[in-house]
Design a binder for these strands. Structure first.
Lengths: 215, 215
DNA sequence: TGATGAACATACTACCGGGTATGTTGTCAA
DNA sequence: TTGACAACATACCCGGTAGTATGTTCATCA
């Protein structure tokens, strides 16, 4: 159910590099991370990386794509859930937050990618690839947007400006990317409890009434 | 009441440079911004900048300091407010969000500064200055932390883990840094309405009951 | 068994950007 | 009027880094 990187990449050599790159980017940022840094963290050299990727931006784009694919896969089981939209939202939100925590190095890269797109810092060729990825991300956002709008119509949510509400909701749901750090001896249940609190906070922020918690 | 950069800087030449730097950092990020970029946006050259600042990191530290000082100044009138802690929190939160919006280029730099400190990317000399600024920021955070804890004791707020609640609260209150963009013909009232919605979202997230809105 | 190509490592180039060293101009005081 | 200094501009240095060109090793298959 919770798919990892391996399930979204063909060759494992590429997956190794992507994981290393994601860790480095998360730790030091995109620009501050050199190709040699990534290679060193793999116990290898540039040659290995440039054998599998054409450029640094290429690695970034692939990270972005895989990150988004994992997000889609995580909420897929709940997208078409029947019943109240608010309940559907809660399931999706919970899956989303879990995904943010578990694959946070990838997610942080995705988040940074949006900033990068605002300024035009890639080659014109890469630009179209990037625009496509941004569209991909926007569509993902719209899945949630549609859910909270329907939930408001159904009387379960209560907020003013939908755009602002959506922004604030995503800000909350994504925030573990920045402040979550794994604890020693942390169990799956601990993480789920954490995710639950995050979802509850977002739920309340949207104007949802406190209800019996569902697993 | 809402103090700008000029009120926190002695010489105006330094203030000019800081504002230009803040804009560039916000647009392109710290590393991606070169000293020449900042100089160019001022219609000047490196010489001017290095005449007033010793290094790029120095500009950054100064930005951080000024940004934090403006934050403190913004909430100062409400810190010692008597009455319910929840009401005090609401006033401080509103002032904070307004500050995030109005001085967002500075605030974004401050935010980035926290990340930068987590990895050790400055000279040992600069390190102590930086540590001090982080402390400064932590204390600022504690003002809010104390407020929400008291408010919970007084029965106005309702949340589980205080650390998580505090993180999520700040995430929400700070979020305009990232998604706010000034609209043409936007009035002060528009911005305040926006801030109100952000504060309300955070308020609800903390478990506060919806009440009559106070100006 | 030898040829071929994948999967790397090594060595090198080109360039960008932080920082410095030095020149230039205006101002003000003695 | 001159000298001294602030406030810059110009020219230059140099380390780091993306990207390339060229080995080297090993496995596979004709």
């Amino acid at each position: 159910m919770m798919l990892g990187v391996r399930d979204h990449i063909q060759e494992s050599s590429r997956a190794d590099i992507l994981e290393a790159a994601a860790d480095c980017f998360t730790e030091r940022g995109y620009t501050e991370t050199s190709i040699d840094d990534i290679a060193r963290s793999l116990g290898a050299t540039k040659g290995r990386i440039y054998h599998h990727f054409r450029s640094k931006a290429d690695i970034f784009a692939e990270l972005f794509r895989v990150g988004m694919e994992m997000n889609y896969a995580a909420i897929e089981p709940y997208r078409a859930l029947s019943g109240r939209a608010a309940t559907r939202w809660r399931h999706m939100a919970f899956a989303h937050v879990l995904q943010m925590i578990v694959t946070r190095s990838f997610q942080r890269t995705v988040w940074m990618g949006v900033k990068m797109h605002l300024r035009g810092a890639t080659t014109p060729e890469q630009r179209s690839v990037f625009a496509e990825l941004i569209t991909y991300r926007t569509e993902y956002g719209n899945v949630f947007r549609e859910a909270i709008l329907t939930a408001r119509d159904e009387g379960d949510f209560d907020f003013d400006n939908p755009s602002i509400a959506n922004q604030l909701m995503f800000t909350t749901l994504n925030s573990p990317i920045f402040w979550y750090a794994p604890r020693v001896g942390e169990t799956r249940a601990d993480i789920e409890e954490l995710a639950r609190q995050v979802v509850t906070c977002a739920w309340r922020g949207l104007g949802g009434k406190d209800e019996q918690r569902k697993t």
